[in-house]
């Protein structure tokens, strides 16, 4: 159940996408998101989707994983769709019934936004699928390092992210276990009013909090034993280095940005 969530998971591999510098990958992802929201036609969006699907193919991640990452977002997609279809009243009506008006503009915006969300999910899951969380936090730490000058605790934030990523699977497993244990004691998590269901979460959340604190304490101790003393004077096992392929990726992406603009003009 909870184990099915694949967003944020890393699939080790040796593809070109895996080998790109993680800082570049973050930048590319941001550019791609920018591209999606800049596009204002099916052509423009199509270019964005081709770009991300191309990258997905290069990454050699099974296609199934992409569908899996989209699955939990189906409700959000439907919600966005409905919102756009029924609440945008500008444009020519294509369908009218009592107080409900559906316009061509509403339909189009709904489609745009759904495509954007899908693209967004595929793009960001591709980033996490192909980049080890530690490389990711490393990259964020380095991209944000200019902020250190204005006293932003960049290292600490990156450390917190690493630990969070490290413990997500552990806590998911733990949640599953606590849920089973409370179900075995007759806890009813599936039926009842909203209030009853919220109440039914107490026996799960409290043990989860308690155990998280215990883990945090243990981990802090283990880190201390391994000479952790903040970011000062720290070195890293893996050095981030850009290679020619990173610049090639940047150029290609710039090309796609240009194509998006061009395609929009065409439409």
């Amino acid at each position: 159940m909870l184990k099915d969530i694949t967003i944020g998971q890393f699939f080790p591999g040796k593809s070109i996408v895996h080998r790109l510098d993680s800082r570049i990958k973050i930048i590319l992802t941001i550019v791609f998101i920018f591209m999606l929201f800049m596009a204002d036609s099916f052509y423009g969006l199509g270019v964005g989707i081709i770009y991300v699907l191309g990258a997905f193919l290069l990454s050699k991640i099974p296609f199934k994983m992409m569908l899996k990452s989209l699955k939990p977002l189906v409700p959000i997609l439907i919600f966005t769709g409905i919102l756009n279809i029924f609440f945008i009243t500008a444009g020519d009506p294509v369908f009218e019934w009592r107080f409900i008006t559906v316009t061509d503009m509403g339909l189009r915006t709904a489609a745009y936004n759904m495509i954007r969300i899908i693209g967004l999910i595929i793009g960001s899951s591709l980033l996490t699928y192909t980049t080890s969380p530690i490389a990711l936090t490393d990259a964020i730490e380095r991209l944000l390092s200019p902020l250190k000058k204005i006293k932003v605790p960049v290292h600490e934030l990156a450390m917190m992210m690493t630990i969070a990523l490290r413990f997500i699977p552990t806590l998911i497993e733990e949640t599953d276990k606590i849920m089973s244990a409370q179900k075995a004691r007759g806890a009813d998590l599936e039926t009842g009013s909203l209030l009853q269901r919220a109440k039914a979460l107490v026996p799960i959340l409290i043990p989860l909090f308690v155990s998280s604190f215990r883990r945090a304490e243990d981990l802090a101790l283990a880190m201390e034993c391994r000479c952790y003393h903040g970011g000062e004077g720290r070195t890293r096992l893996k050095q981030l280095k850009t290679a020619p392929r990173d610049y090639v990726a940047l150029v290609i992406t710039a090309g796609f940005v240009f194509l998006t603009v061009f395609a929009d003009k065409l439409a």
Binding site: F10, S132, R234
Partner: peptide, 15 residues
């Protein structure tokens, strides 16, 4: 601490 075995083994040395 880390999400990859070798990164974890490196943790103390990095510190």
């Amino acid at each position: 601490v880390a999400t990859i075995v070798e990164e974890d083994v490196a943790f103390a040395l990095e510190n």
